[in-house]
């Protein structure tokens, strides 16, 4: 009886951590537990969470994707440019997502066919895509302009539906889909298998390269989606946008309890990991902690959480 209780606690440890953390924050500041602030946190978290969703897939296969921040910036800039040059919003979305898919696929091919370590391959893509962004934007922000088209585009990031921000819907849909694939499809099973033991998976007759390529494509397309949301919200794309986002995404995955060595973890706990980071940022702002200290506190929280998790 006691054992099974412990198991249940272990299973939901990320969620329990999140709840305890939220209670502490709401005791420290009464501005935290308000509907508008919670929606605000969720909206702010959505970008990191969406990127982290793709990162979870990659990490489950015992890979890593460092390129997401740069892909985020590059696709965002392309999106802003397309809108500014009066391209249809729907078409823009398709082009941007396709671009993310393409860059992710490129990562996947280099890693699986070129047998390059994921860290190195995506580090190269990260630098490449960042460079491409700077070349494309000439180092200056690209505004989406003030056309009707741009206004329609701006809805993605700053619109509301039933007084809930649209990015929250997008996040929920992404995670529902990611959960479904992981839990109920062959691809999901293969992702866990690949992270558990690549050679055994390959010997079981699974096309391991295909799985890897799909996983990096998923990560790429979600980075592009996140890039779209921010560009839409700001109505402009910054050439340096998304710097360090890969690390926030990895932190969210790890805080959720997914193993960096692959094979263990799930995508729902990643959303919790992302929320912990989001709440931390939000509450430190509410408590007027200087942004310099914020980074240090964030680093400490990640370190403590991972150390606690290591024991199990």
């Amino acid at each position: 009886m006691k054992g099974s209780f412990k198991e249940e606690v272990m299973k939901y440890r990320a969620l329990i951590g999140l709840i305890i953390f939220s209670i502490i924050i709401s005791l420290l500041t009464d501005r935290f537990m308000t509907v508008s602030n919670i929606l605000n946190v969720l909206r702010q978290t959505s970008i990191n969470a969406i990127i982290a969703g793709g990162m979870t897939y990659v990490i489950l296969t015992s890979g890593i994707d460092l390129s997401v921040g740069s892909v985020f910036a590059f696709t965002g800039a392309i999106g802003a440019y397309l809108i500014a040059s009066d391209t249809n919003v729907f078409l823009t979305i398709l082009i941007v997502l396709f671009l993310g898919l393409l860059i992710g696929g490129f990562n996947g091919v280099v890693i699986s066919k070129g047998k390059v370590q994921p860290f190195i391959a995506t580090l190269a893509t990260m630098t490449l895509a960042r460079g491409a962004t700077l070349v494309f934007t000439q180092g200056k922000p690209i505004s989406t302009g003030a056309s009707e088209n741009a206004e329609a585009f701006a809805k993605i990031g700053s619109g509301y539906l039933f007084s809930i921000p649209i990015p929250i819907y997008i996040m929920v849909i992404v995670f529902a889909l990611a959960y479904y694939i992981l839990k109920h499809t062959r691809l999901g099973r293969y992702i866990y298998a690949l992270g558990g033991n690549e050679e055994a998976t390959s010997l079981s007759g699974i096309n391991v390269s295909k799985v890897k390529i799909l996983v990096y494509m998923f990560s790429g397309v979600l980075a592009a989606l996140a890039g779209l949301i921010l560009t839409s919200r700001l109505s402009s794309a910054q050439p340096t946008a998304g710097s360090g986002y890969e690390l926030d995404a990895i932190a969210a995955v790890v805080l959720g309890g997914t193993s960096l060595s692959g094979g263990y973890g799930n995508v729902l706990s990643t959303i919790i990991g992302a929320l912990i980071i989001g709440i931390l940022n939000n509450s430190l702002n509410l408590m007027n902690v200087s942004s310099y200290y914020q980074l240090m506190i964030k680093g400490l929280v990640i370190l403590i959480a991972v150390l606690l998790d290591r024991k199990h």
């Binding site: 099973r189 033991n197 055994a200 263990y264």
Partner: peptide, 23 residues
Amino acid sequence: ANGLILSLSVKENMSISSLKTFK
């Protein structure tokens, strides 16, 4: 080393090579 995926369950190991038949 390469016969089973130790982090998966009995069922998941058994069906991994023939998942297509359970679609």
